[in-house]
Simulated assay, not measured.
Amino acid sequence: MKIRRKLLMSLVLVLIASSLMGCAQKAEAPANSESGKLELKQISIGGAGTSGTFYIMAAGFSDVINKKLGINSVAEVTGGSVENLKLIGDKKIEMGVTQVDVAQDALAGRKQFDKPVSVTAVLPMYPNVVQIVTLKDSPINSFQDLKGKKISVGSPGSGILATNEIILNTLGLSMEDILPQYLSFGETTDAFRDGSIDAAIVNTAAPAPWIVDLETTHPVKFIPLTSEEIGKFTAEPYYVEAVIEKDAYKSLDADIPTFAVWITLVCQSDLSEDAVYDVVKAIFENGENLKDVHSVAKYITLDNVKSIGGVPYHPGAIKYYKEKGIEVPSN
């Protein structure tokens, strides 16, 4: 009898131990998504300066991930495209907002990147519109009038700066032909107000919050590009013809012809397929909420998935798109 009681007690202790181990394992398991597959405990998304669309949209994505997937996510203040891609390459952030042309440079390890960055596309965001801004009473009326002027060209590490170097060289100028000022959006607004710059060349969504802010004290004007100037860019797959719509700013009474570069959300290429799938699904299925964050969210559509060229999509993103009938090459 004593032996049987000892055996019974041993069995009870084993069952209790197993139960406690199961509880401990559940408590230590990473936060799961609605599908129970998301393996990441945190997702940091590189944006840019807080007054720019990159950061605003990164914050919107983080909010969706927090609320819909139950994962701690935060938008990071960074220098923009170039820095975001370098941070992804160094495994310091999981995702980031970037220009497609800069992402291609990162993949190839050229220009601002001293080595290739392993990065993949997550979803299309919006076309970033090139906007050449000056004050209403400025004598600047064409691109060539920028020569010799103090021009805000973007902060160090930004995609804006990288693209502006291309814009200047393509249209017959260079950084040596102007007096470049390496300013963020917020700094550019202040510089216009204190008279320390003559103009700014930026590629960002319209309306840009910092320009709207500037308009509250200083009427502005936008310098149009000619069809010939625009054509020098649109030969590349990641540039498209665009206009700054007259309704974007109160200073405008007509659309301004220009061009745009596509913006995409990218991630570390070795993130799990399930993790990226769940993020893409959550963002696409909460598009209406994102439109309240910024009007550019209207471009996050399945129709625009193929607008991102030259940067391979992550397998998790491809899985979601295939479910929706969108075939994307897994190159």
Rank of each mutant, 00 (worst) to 15 (best):
I197K: 02
R110Q: 14
N164V: 13
N128I: 09
G195S: 08
V130D: 05
D190I: 13
N164A: 04
G231D: 06
L225P: 02
G195A: 10
A191I: 08
P124A: 14
G157R: 02
D190F: 12
G195N: 10
Q131F: 06
T226P: 04
D145L: 03
V117G: 00
N128A: 15
V153F: 06
R193D: 08
V133I: 15
S155T: 13
S227I: 05
L214H: 06
L183P: 00
P116E: 01
P207T: 09
S158R: 00
T189F: 08
A208K: 03
D114F: 13
K115M: 07
G172A: 12
I230Y: 03
S118I: 02
A191Y: 04
G148F: 01
S155M: 12
Q131H: 06
F185C: 05
E165F: 09
V119P: 03
E187V: 05
T226D: 03
I201N: 05
N141Q: 12
Q131M: 15
P156E: 10
Q112S: 12
G157V: 11
P124M: 15
I166Y: 12
N141Y: 08
G172H: 02
L214N: 04
V220F: 10
E176S: 14
P124D: 13
K150H: 11
L179Y: 07
F222T: 02
M125L: 15
T189L: 12
A106H: 02
V130H: 12
T170Y: 07
G109L: 07
P156Y: 15
L225F: 12
F233E: 03
F143N: 00
I178G: 00
V153Q: 09
P207G: 05
F222E: 05
A121L: 02
Q131G: 01
I230S: 06
T163W: 14
E228K: 14
A208E: 12
P139D: 15
R110M: 13
G154I: 01
L123W: 11
K115G: 04
I151D: 01
K150P: 07
L225E: 01
N164G: 07
S174V: 10
R193G: 05
H218Q: 14
P207S: 05
S138K: 00
S155N: 08
D213T: 14
K232R: 15
I166F: 11
V202D: 07
P127G: 04
S158V: 11
A208F: 10
D114K: 15
N128S: 15
Q112M: 13
G186T: 03
F185Y: 14
S158Q: 03
N128H: 12
I230W: 01
V202M: 12
